[in-house]
Design a protein around this nucleic acid. Structure first.
Length: 115
DNA sequence: CCAGTGACGGCTA
DNA sequence: TTAGCCGCCACTG
């Protein structure tokens, strides 16, 4: 699934969701890491856009994707009754001031973890 | 068609 | 070191 392909929106979004599904329980990754893995480095904003649509899918752990500083920049896109930080805390990821505390050790990079 | 707006990230000051 | 600026490009009004 590591195909540096053109921007066929729909396919790109599907690839993003696929990668997000591979993020292990209790770990987190970043928009940029996903973009690089898909051969679209520099288009990290599109990853965020794809996730915006995925927020409604219960089978996609969108809460495991944060920005490069480990901050929960997308928390306002989650339902209030089950916010992003709550979902992370639920799987043992400590969050403080809208930021993943142990981000450096919990960071999961598809490029190095998957090859 | 045109301009504004981002769940971003790298570079410059 | 912290703050901005700019490139990225789909989507909306």
């Amino acid at each position: 699934m590591k195909q540096p392909q053109a921007f066929n929106r729909r396919d790109f979004y599907a690839d993003v969701w696929e990668v997000v599904r591979l993020v292990p329980h209790g770990r987190v990754t970043t928009y940029g890491a996903i973009a690089r893995y898909l051969g679209a480095a520099g288009s990290s904003r599109m990853v965020g856009y794809a996730l915006h649509e995925a927020a409604t899918h219960d089978d996609i752990p969108a809460h495991r994707v944060v920005n490069r500083l480990g901050m929960l920049s997308g928390q306002h896109h989650f339902p209030q009754d089950h916010p992003m930080d709550e979902r992370l805390m639920q799987e043992g990821v400590a969050v403080q001031d809208a930021r993943v505390v142990a981000f450096n050790t919990l960071f999961w990079d598809p490029a190095t973890e998957l090859g």
